[in-house]
Amino acid sequence: MLEFVDVEYYYDSDMPGATPALRDINLKIEDGEFVGIIGHTGSGKSTLVQHMNGLLNPTKGKYIYDGTVIDAKSGNLKELRAKVGLVFQYPEHQLFEATVLEDVCFGPKNMGLTDDECKKRAVEALDKVGVDAKYYDASPFELSGGQKRRVAIAGVLAMSPRVLVLDEPTAGLDPEGRHDLLNMLKTLNDEGMTIVLVSHSMDDVAKYARRLVVIDNAYIAFDGTPTEVFSHKSELVNMGLNVPQITGIMQSLKSNGFDVDDTLFDVDAAAESIMKCLDRK
């Protein structure tokens, strides 16, 4: 379980007049949740997730993982980082080994596992992300963009984290690549892994996350189910965000006198609701 208590974070805390990157953050994420964290560029969402595995420590307040307070004095962060896997934006930029398999082994190796165990974990992880065995000995730099990204995610999965945090994992992928990746996250979540998905795309997260946390200007603006959050359309638009396209359409339909459910974001459900509304007339 991850817990933020009154967390505040400054990048340059010694500079006078510095503005906090995070303020008044109170957030609890239970095991097995699928949480979407939404905010526009510079809202503080990336800063928030970097606290989750101790890369950053709160300037004020507390961050607690499974009952242990994580701060600058916490000794062994490697253990935490194995439990809370963090996938950065464009993770393919961190690949460095000569072969795909070796690169994925990097995390497990840092955990001090034996070579055999590392390899076993790497193969499992590559299997989960759908990278075929024929690429194991290829150089990661020769793969296509989408494959590179999967290998990079496997590099974090190989540490067998209980929580997987991903910062904009779908950036730059085409529609198919985006679906594949999000479906993979859903499978991992179904298997019990906690997923924290950071994104500025409502459409991406709406279908998968069961809970949305909206960050705006260093604060948590909204925290609730997608339906609850999307009911605040005008506030979201003011923050430079938007509701999913389908929700937007349903809301416009409703204001045009159609009696439809304006909290939907799935095409099928929306079609269903529109059909029902028309049948009634």
């Binding site: 529609p175 690549g177 396209q245 095409v267 079609a271 529109i274 059909m275």
Partner: peptide
């Protein structure tokens, strides 16, 4: 590997119904 905008998809879905 492409998809149409969500509006178009919804209209398509309604048409097929």
């Amino acid at each position: 590997g492409l998809e149409v905008p969500q509006v178009t998809l919804l209209a398509h879905e309604l048409k097929s119904r």
